[in-house]
């Protein structure tokens, strides 16, 4: 992987060898589309800065994860069929949500099987291996860790459960963050413990969810970070919602927005869930 770069404005930013410019389909996810558009813009900014062409297939909607995880499989299958069709023909599909990526990779094949729809199954077989979470797409597919970002803040990273245990992003986000100029990456105590979001879990079991979130917030405060970041706006909505309620003075911000930031306009884009 990647740390070789010419002495350009962003040294180390471009991988050695010839990683050609790719045509990348952006799966923005319904949550980011609707509530956190700045994250979507940041992904576009970032990938284009790295020399790739980004497409936003307008036929995309929701991956169906919320329905699937709540037991509404038939409805989820309907959404999944539409999403898989929307991304036909893309060599890579990138999403700023590890959990939506995991939904496609882990559960779409079973869903397609349940419907018995051959076209759907074909779309899924094509799509599933090409869906990437943003962080590992950068480190493993493009092969870059220094994306030329500048973000002069103290930041801590929350490894979301699905990024950790389903998409297995490993240390990719940490490597990306460490390469950001000006950024002071601080440890998050008990980092790998779930924040308690869990989709509809947060509504069906609000007391447990809130208790888990309170512990996550306490850990974030203990880290003394100004910004908590993660690879998923859903968990950040949960954590950020609690931080905001408590007026904790810590911002929750998607990893993409930090990586897109170059210090001028970028730093201020914070959609800050």
């Amino acid at each position: 992987m990647a740390d070789r770069g010419q002495d350009t404005r962003f040294p180390g930013m471009f991988p050695s060898g010839n990683v050609r410019s790719m045509r990348i389909g952006l799966f923005v996810t319904c949550l980011t589309d609707t509530l956190y558009p700045e994250t979507g813009k940041a992904v576009v900014t970032l990938l284009e800065r790295l020399g790739h062409r980004v497409d936003f297939p307008a036929g995309q909607a929701c991956c169906g994860q919320m329905h699937f995880n709540t037991g509404y499989r038939r409805e989820a299958a309907r959404m999944a069929r539409g999403l898989a069709a929307a991304f036909r023909g893309h060599e890579a599909v990138v999403t700023p949500s590890a959990s939506c990526a995991a939904m496609i990779r882990e559960y779409y094949p079973a869903l397609a099987g349940e419907t018995g729809d051959a076209g759907f199954a074909r779309d899924v077989a094509e799509l599933a291996p090409r869906v990437h979470d943003l962080a590992t797409f950068l480190t493993d597919v493009i092969g870059v860790t220094d994306v030329g970002a500048y973000f002069p803040h103290k930041v801590t990273y929350h490894p979301t459960c699905h990024s950790l245990r389903m998409m297995r992003v490993g240390d990719a986000p940490y490597r990306l963050l460490k390469a950001v100029r000006g950024l002071d990456l601080v440890d998050l105590p008990d980092a790998t413990t779930c924040c308690g979001f869990g989709g509809t879990f947060s509504l069906k079991n609000p007391d447990i969810s809130a208790a888990m979130c309170a512990d996550k917030v306490a850990a974030i405060r203990q880290s003394r970070a100004e910004v908590v970041t993660a690879g998923d706006n859903s968990c950040l909505m949960h954590i950020g919602g609690a931080l905001s309620r408590l007026r904790a003075g810590v911002r929750a911000m998607h990893l993409a927005e930090i990586l897109a930031s170059t210090g001028d306009a970028g730093a201020a884009t914070g959609g800050t869930p």
Binding site: V28, T32, P37, E38, F56, L203, G241, A242
Partner: peptide, 18 residues
């Protein structure tokens, strides 16, 4: 309200990504 009992919710932005 099960959400907003303990957490703020984000207001929809003026313009979606789409």
């Amino acid at each position: 309200s099960a959400w907003t009992d303990t957490r703020d919710a984000p207001a929809p932005p003026p313009e979606s990504f789409r």
